[in-house]
Simulated scan of single mutants.
Amino acid sequence: MQLNYKSYGEGFPLVILHGLFGNLDNWQTLARKWADDYRIILVDLRNHGRSPHADEMTYPLMAHDLAAFLEEQAIDRCHVLGHSMGGKVAMQVALTYPALVEKLIVVDMAPRQYGRGHDDVFAALNALDPASLEDRRDAEERMKPHMEDAGVRMFLLKNLARDSEEGFRWRMNLEVLHRDYENLIAPVGTLGQTFPGQALFVRGGKSGYIKNDDWEGILAHFPLAELATVAGAGHWIHAEKPAELSGLVRKFLEKPAVRRERMVPNMGE
């Protein structure tokens, strides 16, 4: 699968993975800032953005997609940052292909099972017929009865693309995302599977995606993990508190690299 991507800057690679219903454009502002020191690679995951549609959506498959992408790009080692669903993909890559990952950054996501939290989003998206839309304003008006939050509406409508003829189409593979949603809220990692490198987990102070009770499960797979909380931020930390997130990521990446070999992690931290 030929994943769509954009690249900025030069230096050691930092690969960034977006969340569910997102695309690589969501991270361009921070990408340009980090490109002063790193080669930033923004990737559209399968069934999102301008990457190919596929008939199956699982974390092992998405991790394989990224491993194949890195091989195509002749990248044998990189930092990987993922947000939300992209955070689980990043974790799966680190656990399955640890030799590819120098440092791992996970933004507001734990490796655990999550409950269904997007049924209202799917209802709003499925209620919209892109082919019948006149323009983006028409799309937003039609979505209002199903989705009250204007910010979420605008985020979701970034997935609309002009069709070759009149009307619009979804860039994302909405049918498969909806059908395979249970795979996307499933946990990653198997018992005893660990990543030997450094990992930074960043959570929003107003978000419930990483709870205090999740920390033991995180350390079970990522024994060298650190946790940072961005006060006042919800789930979209990169949009709400970009300066704070940028600083945390830079500080973490500038630390000397450490691997777990010959180290015993403190599981009580």
Rank of each mutant, 00 (worst) to 15 (best):
Tyr181Thr: 08
Pro130Lys: 11
Tyr114Phe: 10
Ala186Ser: 12
Arg112Lys: 11
Phe155Cys: 02
Pro145Trp: 13
Asp135Trp: 03
Arg142Phe: 02
Met147Asn: 13
Gly192Asp: 01
His146Trp: 14
Leu157Asp: 12
Gly189Ala: 07
Gly117Leu: 06
Glu140Met: 09
Glu182Cys: 06
Glu141Trp: 07
Ala161Glu: 11
Met143Phe: 04
Arg142Met: 02
Leu160Asn: 01
Asp135Gln: 05
His118Tyr: 14
Arg136Trp: 10
Asn183Thr: 06
Asp129Pro: 05
His178Phe: 05
Arg162Cys: 10
Pro130Asn: 10
Met154His: 14
Leu174Gly: 03
Phe168Ile: 00
Gly192Phe: 09
Arg171His: 04
Asn159Met: 10
Glu141Ser: 07
Val188Ile: 10
Ala123His: 13
Asp120Thr: 15
Phe195Arg: 06
Leu177Ile: 07
Leu174Arg: 07
Pro145Gly: 06
Ala124Cys: 05
Ala127Ile: 10
Thr190Met: 03
Gly189Met: 09
Leu133His: 05
Phe155Met: 04
Arg112Asn: 15
Glu166Val: 00
Phe122Lys: 05
Asp119Gly: 06
Trp170Arg: 01
Gly117Arg: 12
Glu148Gly: 00
Ser164Pro: 00
Ala186Thr: 10
Glu148Phe: 01
Gly189Arg: 10
Arg137Leu: 03
Ala127Cys: 06
Asp138Ile: 03
Asp135Glu: 08
Gly115Asp: 14
Met154Ile: 11
Asp135Ala: 02
Arg171Ser: 03
Val188Pro: 00
Ala139Trp: 00
Trp170Lys: 05
Trp170Gln: 08
Glu165Gly: 12
Thr194Ala: 12
Asn173Met: 08
Val176Arg: 13
Glu165His: 10
Asn126Gln: 15
Leu184Val: 08
Val176Trp: 03
Gly197Ile: 01
Ala124Arg: 06
Gly117Glu: 06
Tyr114Ala: 09
Glu182Trp: 12
Ala139Lys: 02
Gln193Trp: 05
Asn126Glu: 15
Leu160Glu: 06
Arg169Thr: 12
Trp170Asp: 07
Glu134Tyr: 03
Leu128Cys: 07
Glu166Met: 02
Asp149Tyr: 00
Leu191Lys: 13
Gly189Thr: 11
Ala161Pro: 01
Tyr114Ile: 05
Lys158Gly: 14
Ser132Thr: 14
Gly151Asp: 15
Trp170Tyr: 08
Gly197Cys: 00
Pro187Phe: 08
His146Arg: 11
Leu184Tyr: 06
Leu184Lys: 11
Leu133Val: 01
Ala161Gln: 11
Pro145Met: 11
Arg136Met: 04
Arg153Ile: 02
Met143Tyr: 07
Thr194Leu: 12
Asp138Met: 04
Met147Arg: 13
Glu148Trp: 00
Arg142Leu: 13
Ala131Gln: 08
Gln193Glu: 12
Pro145Ile: 10
Pro196Ile: 11
Leu157Pro: 07
Arg179Tyr: 12
Leu125Arg: 01
Arg142Ala: 04
Met154Cys: 08
Leu156Tyr: 08
Leu157Phe: 09
Arg142Gln: 13
Val121Lys: 09
Asp135Val: 03
Val176Asn: 08
Tyr181Met: 04
Leu128Phe: 04
Phe168Met: 00
Arg112Leu: 12
Val121Ser: 05
Ala123Gly: 05
Gly189Tyr: 07
Leu160Phe: 03
Arg162Tyr: 13
Met154Asn: 11
Leu177Val: 12
Asn126Val: 02
Glu165Lys: 12
